[in-house]
């Protein structure tokens, strides 16, 4: 396997190429969570385990990972965002095993993952269940319904990862509902909480491995501090990159930024 830096560079570049080709947005959120996805999907999750992308607007990051692992062929990946594709802007289910649910309305993923973890528990399966949430997901009430259920039912093989880039649809999290993804809330509900840098693959891998063996009756949450648009200078921490497609000049600049980042 390539080293993690090479994978990070390759998949960031792929995200830029495909969104440029499709003239699509949602680039900022894909770049903020791609390292988390690489860690979960490339390094940690085994084939029988399930991963749910609750922040469905980062579908492109999921698609490039599933392409890297060989599940989505190159030809299909090139159809991203086009008429007749299996790969719309938010994931559509029923085609790829790595995309078990159609997601895109926030607040659904943790409930689904909790159901999967509960089913695994009834079946006495040792499989872990992974779910990736956004800041916006933690605005939704259903996330907290599921969190309480997971704690009370001791779903300690449930690993929740929050891509905490702190920017939402129309403002900074702190200016909207406040920090709804804060560690204190998860701790008080009864989760084991790990706050980490969400771009450090080795740290993410190490934390997930720690979670795997910590079978103490508590579900786990990794609050991963991330940067929206990570790696592209003019996108970083900018809300508009939730929406905007790149111009030719911006695309060239973005590729240069990524090259620079991984040559440093």
């Amino acid at each position: 396997m390539k080293n993690s830096g090479e994978i990070q560079k390759q998949l960031r570049t792929r995200i830029l190429e495909l969104s440029h080709q499709a003239n699509s947005g949602h680039i900022g959120g894909a770049l903020s969570c791609i390292d988390l996805l690489i860690s979960i999907l490339v390094y940690n999750k085994n084939e029988e385990e399930d991963f749910i992308l609750s922040k469905g607007h980062a579908a492109l990051a999921l698609y490039v990972c599933l392409n890297y692992s060989g599940e989505i062929p190159d030809s299909e990946l090139l159809s991203f965002y086009k008429n007749g594709t299996q790969l719309p802007a938010h994931p559509a289910a029923n085609k790829y095993k790595g995309i078990p649910f159609a997601l895109g309305s926030l607040g659904h993923g943790l409930s689904i993952a909790t159901g999967i973890a509960q089913a695994n528990k009834i079946q006495a399966s040792g499989n872990h269940t992974f779910v990736l949430l956004s800041d916006g997901d933690t605005n939704e009430g259903t996330t907290w319904e599921a969190a309480h259920f997971a704690v009370n039912n001791q779903l300690d093989r449930l690993i929740v990862v929050i891509d905490k880039n702190s920017i939402q649809g129309f403002g900074n999290s702190s200016d909207i509902l406040g920090d709804t993804a804060n560690a204190g809330t998860w701790i008080s509900i009864g989760f084991d909480v790990f706050e980490i840098d969400g771009h450090d693959i080795e740290l993410i891998n190490g934390t997930i491995q720690k979670c795997r063996i910590l079978l103490n009756g508590k579900p786990k949450v990794l609050i991963a501090n991330t940067t929206k648009g990570k790696g592209v200078s003019y996108m970083e921490k900018r809300m508009e990159w939730h929406y905007l497609p790149m111009t030719e000049e911006q695309y060239t600049q973005a590729l240069q930024d990524i090259n620079k980042l991984y040559h440093a």
Partner: peptide, 11 residues
Amino acid sequence: GMAAGMAYKGY
């Protein structure tokens, strides 16, 4: 939502 997750796992 949980029911959907459980149904996905065969219930």
